[in-house]
Design a protein around this nucleic acid. Structure first.
Length: 680
RNA sequence: GCACCCGUAGCUCAGUUGGAUAGAGUACCUGACUACGAAUCAGGGGGUCGCAUGUUCGAAUCAUGCCGGGUGCACCA
């Protein structure tokens, strides 16, 4: 039995007792951890509500404390419950039988994995960086959030498909193409030569990053604050048009540029342990005419209508109830422009319908790359595919999570409503906007980057990053910096390691630092990026959590196998041996024992935390939990000598606790995408 | 103008469907390595939870209003 199951049983008992004794039905029954361990292991504040319910049902007035006294013996019937105390105005505080539960928790557990292909599939789309430049830390927040959420869903037993949307026909790619064509006067072959000649520290996506900012100036004739030069905007439109058409030299050139940027971005994400199942490319959505089908569906269902007059004359619009409802014109969202082209919203609705398996069309697919572990990354394509690739089935998910920053919450809401209008049977909940706030630059970070701030910007709490202005911290730069910092520390502490081992360890530490830094903030908190904080390995950081896990491992490396086996055997015997149980209970009693016990209780909350993260779509909860578990263990580690403990029972308890912590902490870290090196 | 998000310790942030004495990290001060690793641990000071009213046994949490900050409101993507 797990702690969660025990809680369920206790709740059920309270419900049935309330029914029997008072004839009332408890609706919401919370079980919470008391503020201090001396107050018990589990608290039920249910009697306040019961008092109310009883009064409503019978008119009889009963004090919450009196009700609690009546429920108390029913809960004490459980073997796992040591005693129940009534506290405060009427809290029911349950104290568990510590020895019995330790023995229960020490028993090996099996983990579940979603292998059933019939199981409904969750779709998560994340990263989706415009493939025209290198990734910056804002993009990394998206990817780390998305990837961690995928790991959370999988840990909770869900089947998940991970997609990375590639907008290879949009304005951003067109801009870089304009840069290559009209600023650098390069054709495709020359770009390829350039690409292969770039140094390792300045790869293709870095080159495009700089070129992209040059294009911004180019459009405005060198003045970033100035007006767009119409002649030059015409160049962009030419490129955009060629991209939409496809099968021409400009489209070919753009495809090379976009694909190379995608490869660079995937390499960056690979450094952080982030992988995908499928790259969904916008060009394929266009060329396979997904929109046409969606258009038919929307017309069929009466979701959109053609405007014959007014300022939207000639457009297909989707009536959209705005929150105010004052201005009728503003509540219509244009889906097809008067020139016949489709807007982003329309394309996204088509794509979402495909994800949910409701479009009635499919892509063709080919292998994009094989990951080192044998996993395959696929990409969509337009041409018919070769038979017998043995590819998995893509799309057709039961729910879709779109990891997109909160600035797009308005358009995302429109897309979700559009989807729900076309396929009302799946409902609006099927398309979830997994939103998060941006990563901005702190004034100190701007200074460190050598960015001159205007007087207006200086008064702001933070500065928004901008790919267009080249204003931002590139992901690879930051990872490099983290790895260098970690390597210095590893060399200091583990000089005997080989160079490769040092580098590998430094890498794991760097990943831990970056991922934890991006996960410790809740989604709707703006991260004002600060180098000092991001580069720290002390305090509430990934490396701190990692360090605690490394220590659990080093204990087992130094313990002799017989000693561990003896501890395991001891735990098995506890339940059937009253004398032994009493001795274990003694170890877990008193001030020191309660601290061990609290740590143990904390380890058992992992599954609940995972479930909570899944339901709230908030990975920060898991990050916070992992940190508190690491902190509790660090204290335990400091307070107890495990290897040299002379008393057999006491040592057995310490080893059992350490073993449980090791399992839970390592699992929690893995879900956060953090590995535990052998030493650090 | 309208919509959404935020306001909690000097700073950066947590705070479960409303629950017991509002917590972490950091900075500052003090102490602990002959020890299973000090990327650690212990202790200290530091709060009108933006303001006001209301809802109730109980409010950082819910409602309303106000103040301050951010983002978004195109036939762009």
């Amino acid at each position: 039995m797990t702690l969660t199951e025990l809680q369920q049983n206790l709740k059920e008992r309270i419900r049935s007792a309330a029914r029997e004794m008072f004839g009332v039905e408890v609706q919401q029954l919370a079980a919470e951890a008391p503020p201090r361990p001396e107050l018990g292991d589990l608290a039920f504040p249910v009697c306040f509500e019961l008092a109310k319910l009883i009064k409503q049902a019978t008119g009889e007035k009963q004090a919450p404390r009196a009700i609690a006294e009546k429920l108390k013996p029913r809960l004490e019937e459980f073997n796992e419950v040591d005693r129940v105390e009534i506290a405060g105005a009427g809290y029911i505080n349950v104290f568990f039988d510590r020895a019995r539960l330790l023995s229960l928790f020490a028993a090996p557990t099996t983990t579940r994995e979603a292998t059933d292909l019939e199981q409904p599939k969750m779709m998560v789309e994340h990263t989706s960086i415009n493939p025209n430049k290198a990734a910056h830390i804002g993009h990394v927040r998206n990817a780390v959030l998305g990837d961690t959420f995928v790991r959370i869903l999988k840990a909770a037993g869900d089947r998940v498909e991970v997609q990375n949307y590639i907008d290879n026909t949009g304005v951003q790619v067109a801009d870089v193409v304009v840069g290559f064509l009209h600023i650098e006067n390069k054709d495709l072959d020359q770009i390829k030569v350039l690409d292969t000649s770039l140094p390792k520290h300045y790869p293709f996506d870095y080159y495009c990053w700089d070129l992209y900012t040059k294009v911004g100036l180019f459009y405005r004739d060198g003045n970033l604050g100035g007006e767009m030069n119409p002649e030059k905007v015409k160049l962009r439109n030419e490129v955009l048009h060629a991209l939409e058409e496809g099968s021409n030299t400009i489209a070919e050139l753009a495809d090379y540029v976009a694909t190379r940027n995608v490869e660079c971005i995937l390499d960056t994400m690979e450094r952080l342990g982030i992988r995908y199942d499928l790259l969904a490319r916008e060009s394929d959505i266009l060329h396979l005419h997904f929109w046409n089908r969606a258009f038919e569906l929307m017309k069929e269902k009466g979701v959109i209508r053609y405007e014959t007059e007014g300022r939207h004359a000639g457009c297909w619009v989707m009536p959209f109830e705005s929150h105010t409802g004052t201005d009728e014109h503003e509540s219509d969202k244009i889906i097809v422009r008067s020139n016949g082209t489709v807007t982003y919203t329309g394309k996204d609705i088509a794509y979402q319908l495909w994800k949910l398996g409701k479009l009635g069309l499919d892509f063709h697919y080919k292998v994009f790359r094989n990951y080192p572990d044998g996993k395959t990354l696929w990409t969509t394509k337009t041409d018919p595919e070769e038979p017998g690739t043995g590819r998995p089935h893509f799309g057709g998910g039961i729910r879709v999570y779109n990891v997109i920053d909160s600035r797009q919450s308005y358009p995302q809401e429109i897309v979700a409503r559009g989807v729900a209008a076309v396929v009302p049977e799946v409902g609006e909940e099927a398309s979830v906007h997994f939103s998060y706030e941006m990563v901005a630059l702190s004034p100190a970070a701007c200074e460190a980057l050598g960015i001159e701030l205007s007087e207006e910007d200086r008064t702001r709490p933070y500065i928004e990053m901008s790919g267009r202005k080249g204003l931002g911290v590139k992901a690879d730069d930051l990872i490099n910096q983290l790895e260098a910092g970690a390597l210095t520390e590893v060399e200091k502490r583990n000089p005997e390691l080989s160079a490769d081992a040092k580098t590998a360890t430094a890498h794991e530490v760097a990943v831990a630092a970056l991922r934890y830094f991006l996960l410790k903030f809740t989604r709707n908190t703006v991260i004002a990026f600060d180098f000092k904080e991001a580069l720290s390995f002390e305090g509430e950081t990934g490396p701190y959590c990692q360090y605690a896990a490394v220590r659990t491992n080093s204990i087992f490396r130094k313990l002799r196998d017989e000693t561990v086996a003896a501890a395991d055997a001891l735990m098995k015997e506890v339940a059937g041996d009253a004398a032994l149980q009493a001795r274990v209970a003694e170890v877990l009693s008193g001030e020191g024992g309660t601290e061990i016990w609290s740590l143990l209780m904390l380890t058992q909350q992992l599954d609940d935390v995972i479930a909570q993260c899944r339901n709230s779509a908030e990975p920060a909860n898991l990050a916070k939990y992992t940190f508190s578990l690491a902190r509790a263990f660090s204290r335990f580690y400091h307070d107890h000598r495990i290897l040299s403990e002379p008393d057999e029972v006491r040592r057995g308890v310490l080893i059992a606790v350490t073993k449980i912590v090791r399992t839970k902490l390592t699992t929690a870290l893995a879900i956060l995408g953090i590995n535990v090196p052998d030493q650090m």
